[in-house]
Amino acid sequence: MYLYLPVALTSINILIPVGLGLAVGLLSGLFGVGGGFLMTPLLIMFGIPSTVAAATDSNQIVAASTSGTYAHWRVGNVDFKMGLYLLIGGFAGGLVGVQAIKILKATGNADFVIKMTYVLLLGTVGTYMFIESLTSMKKSKAATAEVKPEKESAFAKALGKLPLQTRFEKSGVTHSLLLPIIFGGFVGVLGAIMGVGGGFLMVPIMVYILRMPMHVVVGTSLFQILFNCIEVTFLQAYTNHSVDFVLAVLLLLGSTVGAQVGAVFGRKLKGEQLKVILAGIVLAVTVKIIFDLTLSPSLLLGQGGGH
């Protein structure tokens, strides 16, 4: 059955957005990412204008991450304190990022810089996470001990010397308050420049720098994404009029259910297993973008927007 989308001004078979929502929502509940890096290009592929695709996706993520946060919160996997500081940083970073993109655009080669940064970040993060999680999976097979005492790196020692140290109970870690604010800000800047939510960056930062347990990372990341996407949805609806309510509803029919299933399924997997699958997906997306960049396009003209 087809439905007409009043803002996208096109008609779509309802099975497409519901199915896409289900798949991306599943990833969201499993890994704590918004999934914009998958959803936005897929929507564009199905004929949705790029500006509407990005804006509507953020509206949809509000629903999926509410559903996912709720599921993770019920089993005690959301660190609200950490999430709050990440949000403060992310909000400030977003403001800086919006200015940075203006400067970049003025230099004339914004597209090149943005695309290259995006590919390099995805590739590096994916590869690192993939290798690291594979190694730790092998290690945990060899050693029976669940928690292995690790030697503190010089980086970790330096972080420990920062002022305003505080205990994050849920995550079981002690850090300076500045740490989540700075890294939240960093992801906020990059997210605004690249036009993505940045979940794929936030998750590895929480795992490897903030040293939070993977299951708490997923819940906390969703909590943080929820508030980011509320802000983005409002701004998009208010300034660009590019949120398609009907499309968002179709997407969230799938994604809210997907997020619940993902959260349940995720509890059955080990942290390392989750990391290695997420790394695989991030690497697959990197390869796909590289293909898109190098293969001759069938059309040399297109609408603006997107990343």
């Binding site: 999926a64 559903s67 509320i230 609806a237 949120v243 309510f245 968002a248 509803v249």
Partner: peptide, 17 residues
């Protein structure tokens, strides 16, 4: 419009939860 979109999404997320 933005407000309604956000409230609907929040409601749907909680509802399904």
């Amino acid at each position: 419009y933005g407000f309604i979109s956000i409230i609907s999404a929040l409601g749907a997320g909680f509802g399904v939860g």
